[in-house]
Design a protein around this nucleic acid. Structure first.
Length: 215
DNA sequence: CGCTTTTGACCTGCGC
DNA sequence: GCGCAGGTCAAAAGCG
């Protein structure tokens, strides 16, 4: 797969596992701005520098954390926990699209949520991005108002309840829309590999990413 | 043989 | 109450 995609997809699950709250949301720049990508993923800084992971390729629609409360930040910085499914529909990217309107409406209504969710989209030819974790597909559903089916994945690790939904953007099929829900309660296999490899080369990083591709 | 994918059925919540 | 849509289950098939 494309290296840039692997790098981009790595960022969010890694943050989820590290329980890193992210401020704002709504754009890739604001998302990465909360914590420089190069700081989290030293080896990926080159990719960012060349624009491979720029906003044109990666859009973060939502950056949610149940324990994040940052007054004055962007619309989704201080999302109160959702109480009903209907409330979730208002702010969670779905068949109605990932419009800023939906986000602003949710913000105006002061909706609350209870789970860690991150939604973003990446321009990709491939449906499933390699994010370092092992996923098992458990469902597929056609979505109203969208020609593209939505795929449901669950983390293969026992006792880990993290899920993700993947679908192609109905407006631009060249984009893959991914939503992560939940927090991994384990380290990704790729993270372990990455740390070990860098330690061997004299550089050690606590947070890492998937196994570097051999080509 | 074990794990993953597929896919139709089922469940649940919401709007009318 | 009913229909619709989204999400999940689970059995069968596929694959390495």
């Amino acid at each position: 797969m494309h290296m840039a995609l692997a790098l981009a997809a790595d960022l969010l699950p890694a943050m989820a596992y590290r329980h890193e709250p992210c401020n704002g949301g709504g754009s890739a720049s604001s998302f990465f701005g909360s914590r420089p990508a190069a700081a989290l993923f030293p080896s990926s800084s080159a990719a960012f520098g060349t624009g491979l992971l720029g906003p044109a390729h990666l859009d973060v629609f939502e950056c949610l954390s149940s324990d994040e409360r940052v007054p004055g930040a962007a619309a989704f910085a201080t999302p109160p926990p959702l109480r009903t499914a209907a409330e979730r529909v208002a702010v969670v990217p779905d068949a109605e699209g990932y419009s800023g309107h939906a986000r602003s409406v949710a913000a105006e209504e002061g909706l609350r949520r209870t789970t860690d969710r991150v939604a973003f989209r990446v321009r990709s030819d491939e449906e499933v991005l390699d994010d370092g974790y092992k996923w098992r597909k458990y469902g597929k559903k056609s979505v109203k108002n969208s020609p593209n089916p939505r795929n449901y994945y669950r983390c293969s690790t026992e006792s880990c309840n993290v899920k993700k939904r993947v679908e192609r953007d109905k407006d631009d099929p060249s984009y893959v829309v991914t939503m992560y829900e939940g927090v991994h309660n384990h380290v990704s296999p790729g993270t372990i590999y990455y740390a070990a490899q860098d330690a061997a080369s004299g550089r050690f990083f606590v947070a890492g990413m998937h196994q570097p591709l051999g080509h």
